[in-house]
């Protein structure tokens, strides 16, 4: 007896298709839409960035190559000569260096530090005379100076700004109100243009930038500087 191995399909009960077969169409469409949107956005951003870049610029490091001098066989000897001349410009013996940022005055002898003192230097403020419009800047001048004069018990001939700053009209030149034998302390080392290394009654302000351009020292340091630094010594302010 022949038994059919397979049952004809038509005879089998038909099962309904699972609902998942049709469902992926919607997310795919959504995905496609998102992709198009993303592509569009990327293109727009790329175009905007390109537009920005077409207008913009950037910084590139420059090779540290300087303007080349023509080849010179005597360059080495010339350099030696220049360095000797440069060294000759520097100070000899005792000199003073004033750091106007840290407010330190240092005394050197042939490069060796002898004394490091706290000082006060120019405040950098600006005073304006309301009547004349004249302006004073209370800076300590940078660069090389020289001790032009040394005075014991110096008397300060007060300039106009000393009165204007206090709110007073300056008295006539030569009047006794102009002279002050108290404010400069026991010694004064004059650097020219009215700038002086002197003492102070404001000892608590040493180490700060509070002066009108002069360099104020404490009593002991001032005495040391007066006795150690000879006339004509160089004073470097920076």
């Amino acid at each position: 007896m022949n038994v059919p191995l397979e049952t004809p399909a038509s005879t089998l009960p038909v099962e309904p298709a699972p609902p998942e077969a049709e469902a992926p169409a919607r997310p795919r469409r959504l995905l496609k839409g998102l992709l198009v949107l993303l592509l569009g956005a990327t293109t727009a951003v790329a175009l905007a960035a390109g537009f920005c870049l077409s207008r913009g610029g950037w910084y590139l490091p420059l090779e540290t190559r300087q303007v080349a001098a023509p080849a010179d066989p005597d360059q080495d000897s010339r350099t030696d000569k220049i360095e000797k001349r440069l060294a000759a410009l520097g100070p000899k013996g005792i000199y003073v260096v004033v750091d106007t940022y840290e407010n330190h005055l240092r005394v050197y002898k042939n490069g060796e530090l002898l004394r490091d003192a706290r000082c006060s230097t120019g405040s950098g403020t600006v005073l304006k005379d309301p009547r004349t419009g004249k302006v004073w800047i209370f800076d300590t001048p940078l660069g090389e100076h020289e001790v032009q004069r040394k005075v014991k018990d110096p008397i300060w001939s007060k300039p106009d700004w000393a009165f204007i700053e206090e709110g007073y009209q300056p008295p006539p030149a030569g009047s006794k109100e102009r002279f002050d034998d108290f404010s400069l302390g026991a010694y004064g080392l004059y650097l020219g243009d009215g700038y002086i290394i002197h003492g102070t009654v404001f000892q608590t302000l040493l180490g700060r930038r509070v002066t009108h351009g002069c360099i104020r020292l404490g009593d002991d340091d001032l005495e040391y500087v007066y006795k150690t630094v000879p006339l004509g010594s160089k004073v470097y302010l920076f």
Binding site: G124, T125, V126, L127, K128, D129, P130, R131, I137, F163, I164, E165, E166, G167, Y168, Q169, P170, P171, K176, E177
Partner: peptide, 17 residues
């Protein structure tokens, strides 16, 4: 730009000693 301008608005006569 960091300098501070100080200026009395008006001046009075110096009083003297």
């Amino acid at each position: 730009s960091h300098r501070k301008v100080i200026a009395p608005e008006e001046l009075r006569p110096y009083p003297g000693d």
